[in-house]
Design a protein around this nucleic acid. Structure first.
Lengths: 101, 101
DNA sequence: TGACAATATGGCAAAATTACCATATATAAA
DNA sequence: TTTATATATGGTAATTTTGCCATATTGTCA
């Protein structure tokens, strides 16, 4: 088990602003400017957040004219969140599985 | 959506040593001493890692004599990891879900 | 080409995280 | 009670993360 890589993915998700971005991208792909307006942080900060998500493969991007659109590469992430929310609500208990494959 | 709490859960998982602990606890419940031997960190460090996991509800503990046993409270976490690993391997692609409920 | 808009990068200060040491606390056994 | 073992907590230095500003880069359009 590569705990380093596993930790890196969770690190990418361990930030409120990046989580907001991921949720937004689940709705639709967005340009950096759209995301910057949405999360209300400096454009350079958003750009860096996006590179963190890009580096672990959670998002992908494509250039259209002078815009760069980001999209959620791994919808799987949203299933992870449904588990995370169960953890928050203390809904999962030993002997049960929350999302069976 | 409470992005703060969501981020806190992922923060708890955003550390190699805590991930090792979670995997170990998936096998069986362990005392702090057992976990300390396993991850090879200072006992006080392990104790603090455990309190992080405890605070977000990922583990629970119980006292037996002068030992404190920790156990995985949310097996759901292991399903999250199977998704995380797909992210790492780039196996998930848009339009597909990796772990359907 | 020049001017402009969108995005990325370098640098920095503040804040958060990590792991250690020392020590406090609690429980058990002698 | 004394001693020993297990766990938790306070303090601190090193490292990492975060977000800003300034600026570089890239692409579009006139």
């Amino acid at each position: 088990m590569d705990f380093k890589k596993l930790a890196d993915v969770h690190k990418a998700l361990a930030n409120e602003s990046r989580l907001k971005i991921v949720y937004k991208l689940y709705e639709k792909e967005c340009s950096v400017t759209e995301l910057t307006d949405y999360v209300e942080l400096d454009q350079s900060t958003v750009s860096k957040h996006l590179s963190v998500l890009l580096n672990v493969g959670i998002v992908s991007n494509k250039k259209v004219k002078n815009l760069v659109f980001y999209s959620l590469q791994t919808p799987c992430i949203m299933d992870m969140f449904s588990c995370t929310i169960k953890v928050i609500n203390g809904e999962d208990k030993p002997q049960k599985k929350c999302c069976k494959n």
